[in-house]
Design a protein around this nucleic acid. Structure first.
Lengths: 242, 242
DNA sequence: CTAGCACCTATAGCAACGCTATATGAAGTG
DNA sequence: CACTTCATATAGCGTTGCTATAGGTGCTAG
């Protein structure tokens, strides 16, 4: 009844689902609402998307494109850690701009089942942290750093979403963001004593070398040698100093 | 059919709901399952709990008691920040031990509606951080610190829950935990220059004084004077130095 | 002892849900 | 034209959360 343009039913279903989701105010969106708005009947939905979850997965995939676009826009700054900061802010802003979509993407948690979108976002952040590691700015292996930062990022965004818009305090985000980035940064140890919480310089160097090796496809070592070498590096990188 | 002891129907409903939830593997638990297991019919449920959400709220309240009990057990150590560390670990452990219950408590997010359990958990953490502030260990007002730490704590726990149990890496938790505690701690600035990221000692002192005042009910100032004084302290405490 | 009154529970059923067995139409191919 | 293939519609199944109505139970008052 709302828009019966000449678009194919598959597209209309996607749009109807996205629009209804955006205005759902947290409530449930039914397949009957979606199909009625799209001007089709139930079997059309199941023909194209399998089931309701399949349709929402498609909506999430489209939403993720938008999310990634926000990241790629201002990616290439000189300092990788500054880009991480922007990725964090982009993440929070995306969540606050489209809370319902965000909740479907990052809030629909079920035990022992990791949504694909989380893995993708983690990959994006790890990629960026890899550059920081190559430059020797990282205190921790990029994968662990990415997981840790993303977990905090999601937690902060979820908490901000639960607050009513007028009283949202974005300082919660910036403070947590800087705390996490500082924690994985090698700069924290620059003028502390050897017993301080920062990792030693050899660990930082090992992490940087590890990231550089995995990026450069160097063939100075045979594949089996490289494998063992990387394993040692990993052991050094993850050795705890406390 | 399972247990029709002489317990009152209300208790049986609560137990049935909790047990079914714990074994639901993320799936939906229906009121018919619950009432059948409890040996009662539908109207009994709605008489005692209003609706399905009311029943789950009651289950959550019981679960929160258990959660708090874990906190209170080893609360009184000398160092408040060490207790925060334990609260964090207790939170994560609770989430991993009872993932379904945890998801109902902290994962059922809806926009602009803050679950009571989140506010309670935040209050608990703020209370503990208040002691740290009185002792001059805090770099940030206790409320903001509590919100930030809890947000990261929830984010980490949710991320760990999505991972399959055998490959859960608890270092993600400890690393994020220490990063957050370090960020709100006044110790981070101990041997940095004045332009470093740490707050100045006057801010730390202001925060400590603020917390001490609110705890001691001192009557050296009139209520109106005290109100203004606290407002100034708050302004100092939240002043950014970067 | 009984009448009345809360309180609690059961019978039966409604509207809405996700989903599907089956049938019908449209489009392309021999 | 006959035939297949893809896409959509009709109608309905089983289940969901929830409730209008009525019946039973135990208490206190007269």
């Amino acid at each position: 009844m709302s828009f019966d343009g000449q678009l194919p039913p598959k597209t209309r279903l996607l749009r109807a689902a996205a629009e209804l989701l955006a205005n759902s105010a947290g409530g449930v969106v039914s397949t009957r609402q979606i199909t009625q708005r799209a001007g089709v009947t139930a079997p059309t939905l199941y023909h194209h998307f399998g089931d309701k979850e399949g349709l929402f997965d498609a909506v999430v995939a489209a939403g993720f494109e938008e999310y990634v676009a926000g990241d790629r826009d201002f990616a290439p700054s000189g300092q990788p850690l500054e880009d991480i900061r922007r990725m964090w802010d982009n993440h929070v802003q995306f969540g606050l701009n489209q809370p319902e979509l965000y909740l479907v993407m990052f809030g629909n948690i079920r035990p022992e089942s990791r949504p694909a979108v989380v893995a993708d976002a983690e990959g994006l952040m790890e990629e960026m942290l890899n550059k920081a590691a190559v430059a020797g700015h990282l205190n921790v292996p990029p994968r662990e750093a990415a997981r840790s930062i993303l977990a905090a990022n999601v937690g902060v965004t979820l908490m901000l979403i639960t607050e009513k818009a007028p009283e949202r305090n974005l300082e919660l985000s910036t403070m947590t963001r800087d705390a996490m980035i500082f924690a994985v940064s090698s700069e924290q140890a620059k003028d502390n004593g050897p017993e301080a919480s920062g990792k030693s310089s050899v660990v930082v160097a090992a992490i940087a070398l590890n990231a550089a090796l995995q990026a450069s496809h160097s063939d100075q070592l045979s594949s089996s040698e490289l494998k063992l070498f990387l394993e040692w590096l990993h052991r050094i990188s993850t050795s705890s100093t406390s």
